[in-house]
């Protein structure tokens, strides 16, 4: 409970900082007046149409990625499982890029999130098929490498074939993710899918807790592994698909956040789900603040920052679990 209050407070502070930070150089009074009272036409546009959706998307994307990581790790009982690293985000990006370049996304607004969801779904199912129900680290990571590489290559191909001269340079966005110049259009595209994903994944709290006792014990307590698996797959696909469709593939959030928070929740997956959602939101907001403060004019990609923070965690986890990898 204390952890939740602490995380929520951090989140609120980061959200406020995110809304207050930007290149427009508005004063604190101006921003508050514009945001809440709509005073000052230009400032109101900046606050309500540019900064607010960016901060909201940061929360949505972070919560989705943190939650997905926690759920996947809980189900596979493997701390290395993370949608970004094993190619789920990359496959979602491929789905998104395909509908964007074929014009389907422009014709029908649901096409973009649905295609990203489809890509993510295919990747999760393939990973689970290859890694098996236990999700041994070795097969999980090897399968993940292959799927990531293929999805990345196909994304590059689609963007290279695009008639649009700007598309090819956007491989970076799809592989590294960014929240710059997003709008409420993107919030509305992603939100319905994310809500579905959140509901599905948060419903897994008790089954995941029981699963820590082993599958046989869980079965005797009425937990259907198959159903849990299906709910998790759909939940992760919805969360990661929607997040990637609007913000690109941002890796390591689902790895770092549950890893940091696990000691505080006594390794209970159900508590970790909630904590990781809040923590993920805070983490992405913080990262998005950092990219704006470090290099304000260069649109530094979120994924770059997350990798700098996350990769050492990942290497540390591999080092810790290396006995199991053999």
């Amino acid at each position: 409970m204390l952890l939740r209050i602490w995380l929520l407070t951090t989140l609120v502070i980061l959200f406020a900082l995110s809304v207050l930070t930007g290149p427009a150089g508005l004063t604190l009074v101006d921003t508050v007046r514009a945001l809440f009272l709509g005073q000052g036409e230009a400032a109101t546009l900046v606050m309500r149409e540019i900064r607010l959706p960016r901060a909201i998307l940061g929360v949505m994307v972070g919560a989705s990625l943190g939650l997905s990581g926690a759920a996947m790790q809980g189900y596979l009982r493997n701390p290395l499982a993370e949608p970004g690293l094993i190619g789920v985000s990359g496959s979602a990006a491929l789905g998104a890029v395909i509908v964007l370049q074929t014009g389907l996304a422009a014709a029908w607004w649901l096409a973009l999130p649905m295609a990203a969801l489809g890509g993510a779904l295919a990747a999760v199912m393939l990973i689970l098929l290859l890694a098996g129900p236990r999700g041994s680290s070795l097969t999980l990571i090897l399968a993940g490498i292959a799927i990531s590489a293929l999805a990345g290559a196909m994304t590059t191909l689609v963007l290279n074939l695009s008639p649009n001269p700007f598309a090819a340079s956007e491989v970076v966005f799809w592989m590294m993710g960014s929240l710059s110049d997003r709008s409420f259009d993107h919030v509305w595209i992603a939100l319905p899918f994310m809500i579905i994903g959140w509901v599905l994944l948060l419903s897994l709290g008790r089954p995941l807790d029981v699963l820590t006792l082993g599958e046989d014990a869980a079965a005797t307590m009425g937990v259907e592994t198959r159903r849990v698996r299906m709910v998790m797959v759909l939940g992760i696909a919805a969360c990661v698909g929607a997040a990637t469709a609007v913000a690109g593939a941002i890796g390591f959030v689902g790895l770092v956040v549950p890893h940091v928070l696990r000691p505080f929740v006594g390794a209970r997956p159900s508590a970790l789900l909630w904590a990781s959602a809040l923590g993920g939101a805070a983490m992405v907001l913080a990262a998005d603040l950092a990219v704006r403060l470090i290099l304000p004019d260069r649109d530094l990609k979120l994924g770059v920052l997350m990798a700098i923070i996350g990769a050492p965690f990942f290497l540390h986890l591999i080092y810790k679990t290396r006995g199991e990898l053999r």
């Binding site: 546009l45 900046v46 370049q101 996304a105 422009a106 695009s162 649009n164 001269p165 956007e170």
Partner: peptide, 20 residues
């Protein structure tokens, strides 16, 4: 805008500009 789609060109249709 060129044919196909790009994030680079998405800003041309950003709601803040639409309002303007």
């Amino acid at each position: 805008p060129y044919p196909g789609a790009s994030r680079a060109e998405e800003v041309l249709d950003h709601p803040a500009l639409r309002v303007l």
